[in-house]
Design a protein around this nucleic acid. Sequence first.
DNA 1: CATCTATTTCCATGAATATCGAAACAGCCT
DNA 2: AGGCTGTTTCGATATTCATGGAAATAGATG
Lengths: 100, 100
Amino acid sequence: MNIETASRQVDALGNPTRLRIYRALVRAGETGAPVGQVQEALGLPASTLSHHLKKLLEVGLIRQERSGTTLHCHAEYPVMRALVGFLVDECCVDEGTNVG
Amino acid sequence: MNIETASRQVDALGNPTRLRIYRALVRAGETGAPVGQVQEALGLPASTLSHHLKKLLEVGLIRQERSGTTLHCHAEYPVMRALVGFLVDECCVDEGTNVG
DNA sequence: CATCTATTTCCATGAATATCGAAACAGCCT
DNA sequence: AGGCTGTTTCGATATTCATGGAAATAGATG
């Protein structure tokens, strides 16, 4: 993980619409959610949603898998883990161990 | 924590320059770092740095404290903790406990 | 007050972003 | 082929952003 990759991934989540999309996919869990379902749940026009999905795909935060005619979107948990790891890996080191 | 606050904070970190600034402050630890020191370390013009610092201040990710003539900037660890908590609080719930 | 240093504001500019309708396209299934 | 589901492209607009030079300001000190 480097700062360029991290900032592009963080940037992808920095848009409120994309953050909503991403969290919807996180909630959808292992099976993911079809694009149409996300679209309806968030009330987004197709092209707008597609633009945002593309950005999330580009930075690797989500993945798509075809199942019949529908494309299921999944949150890529390992990528998020790595990103969070990068954000906090030098965080709070001076503050002892009062975690939780 | 709500999605608007979270996305503004995430957005603040989504710019590579600001991510560098933030990480420099994280590394600076408890004492923080004077703006001038950050400026020299990252090689940024004063006004550019100031714009970025302002944004980080606005979303609460950093704090400034005067010490004599210099202003020390600090990373606000609790804010980052809350943000990371928001990002992962529903993350990976289906993936068991293979943490670390 | 004068002066010094450290930081911010003002202003401008070029670039990128977010949004979305419409229409063409692509992959899959029956 | 025909009907799904979803993506891409075109085209348009309003907004926001990143950048940085110049000038103003703030706080400490003498």
